[in-house]
Computed example of a mutant assay.
Amino acid sequence: MGTPMRQLILKIESRCNLSCDYCYVYESIDQSWRRQPTVMSPETVGHVARRIREHAAQQGIDGLEVVLHGGEPLLAGHEAVAATLGTLRDALPGVQFLMQTNGILIDEEFLELFHRFGVRVGVSVDGGQEATDRHRRYANGRGSYDRIAAGIAKLMRPEHAAVYNGLLCTIDVRNDPVEVYRALLEFRPPKLDLLLPHGNWTNPPPQRDQALRYAEWLVAVFDAWYDQRPAPTRIRLFESIIARLFGLPSETEAIGGEALGIVTIETDGSYEQSDALKTTFEGGPATGLHVATHGFGDVLEHLARVAPARLPSACEPCPVAAVCGGGLRAHRYAEPAGAAEAGLPDPSPHSAGFDNPSVYSDDLRALITHITGRVRTDLAIGAAA
């Protein structure tokens, strides 16, 4: 029967109305977006629906998650979004919809669509105005915070609680971590995702040369969050680390190393691996497979061959390896001699490719060690009480 797909990421729109300088789709190594049609065609959506129905029958499942993504998915327009949702719902009534958006185009008509189809909406924002406008700008350089905040404010209305899924924040260690956390809490998100900016040994992330800057930033947010128990919002990165401490599954591909059964379909119908691989090399996410000719089982088998859930060899002695799982696969990449060219220590004797620790390995180890200490202290106190 094979591995069931857990989540389908559907690129219904390949362009964006913002020009964020850290964007891993438009501002990175892989520029395949330039060859993509702007909007996913009804024909391609029909192929996707057929593959969903086929996969559900093969696996004996009655539902799965479909994430409408982009680019900016709302640029596809009300009619295209409604038609896509309707076609997929007809194919599998138990399908669960999510969407990741910058929130700028959220209006009353989209809100009605979200409720009609049960779409849970996540919005990307990096904190308050200064933190968000540092990177999330229009092509003319104007900041986007005010319009993003206005979109989130619509989702925050009590009648929209069922469709407000949370926020995604890309970390910039130049921003005060606790200020960012408090600014995000003002939006009352049910869930927060904290995203390490994508980079690797060949193309390091910002401030990677400053030891443990990302760990220090995340530890400050963790302590502020953990000290508020019961926490006012879920933070998936922290919850996944704690889950792995107890041998439970992670909810993010950044932690744990599990094969998560995630499939991506671009607007032209081509299957791809994780978008994060756009930061590795041209064609990094490509599979060579297409929704018109290949089912989800074919894609999952392909991914198991080319991207097995395997701990990098250099990580095996690490005391937190069982929790970290080597980190995000894209963050392990190095071209031949790439690490040396970037002025960084060679991550392993076999640095070409992905058999390396994460470029964030020191930060992840420090963060996991800190969280482990706090959780163990609480468990000891609870046992002694």
Score class of each variant (00 low, 15 high):
residue 64 L to D: 04
residue 76 A to N: 04
residue 212 L to K: 09
residue 277 L to R: 14
residue 86 G to V: 04
residue 214 Y to D: 01
residue 4 P to I: 09
residue 168 L to W: 00
residue 67 V to I: 14
residue 56 A to H: 08
residue 370 H to K: 03
residue 163 V to P: 00
residue 114 F to N: 00
residue 304 A to P: 00
residue 196 L to E: 00
residue 28 S to T: 10
residue 327 G to E: 07
residue 31 Q to H: 14
residue 217 W to K: 00
residue 314 A to M: 02
residue 65 E to D: 14
residue 189 P to A: 09
residue 11 K to V: 09
residue 151 G to K: 08
residue 321 A to P: 04
residue 219 V to H: 04
residue 122 G to R: 10
residue 288 G to L: 03
residue 68 L to N: 05
residue 72 E to Y: 05
residue 136 R to N: 08
residue 87 T to F: 00
residue 12 I to K: 06
residue 76 A to H: 07
residue 206 P to I: 10
residue 299 V to T: 05
residue 170 T to Q: 02
residue 113 L to K: 09
residue 262 I to C: 08
residue 62 D to H: 11
residue 285 P to S: 08
residue 290 H to Q: 10
residue 78 H to Q: 10
residue 204 P to F: 05
residue 176 D to Y: 05
residue 207 Q to L: 12
residue 298 D to E: 13
residue 76 A to Y: 11
residue 118 G to Q: 08
residue 302 H to M: 03
residue 273 Q to D: 12
residue 252 T to H: 03
residue 344 L to V: 13
residue 283 G to E: 01
residue 38 T to E: 14
residue 296 F to L: 13
residue 15 R to M: 10
residue 204 P to H: 08
residue 166 G to H: 09
residue 361 S to K: 07
residue 308 P to L: 03
residue 128 G to F: 01
residue 306 V to R: 04
residue 335 E to C: 01
residue 283 G to D: 01
residue 145 Y to S: 09
residue 3 T to S: 09
residue 299 V to Y: 08
residue 278 K to L: 10
